[in-house]
């Protein structure tokens, strides 16, 4: 079961692909997401979104925004 990750800010699509694992800096602490995670909505605080595709890991800096997950698809909207 793949996990779809889409990260968009007001200027462009930063990332849109399938990942194996994703970590987001939620308001209540860092949240790790694997496929099959329960649906959630969460605000983000300053930090880094990390995602893994097989063995390679990447990061995207975040200032403000929110994330929504449903049906194994994460959509992250960033301000600015």
């Amino acid at each position: 079961m793949p996990l779809k990750l889409k990260i968009v800010n007001t200027k462009k699509i930063l990332f849109d692909d399938e990942v194996d694992y994703c970590e987001i800096p939620a308001k209540c602490g860092i949240e790790g997401i694997l496929p099959g995670h329960i649906n959630f909505i969460s605000f983000l605080k300053e930090g880094k979104i990390k995602y893994k595709i097989q063995d390679s890991q990447n990061e995207i800096e975040v200032k403000e925004g929110f994330a929504e997950l449903s049906d194994n698809a994460i959509s992250i909207l960033l301000k600015g």
Binding site: A26, K27, C28, I38, N39, I41, S42, F43, S70, D71
Partner: peptide, 11 residues
């Protein structure tokens, strides 16, 4: 379609 609900944070 999908009434599994959401966890909303901060709750």
């Amino acid at each position: 379609i999908n009434s599994g609900g959401y966890i909303i944070e901060p709750d």
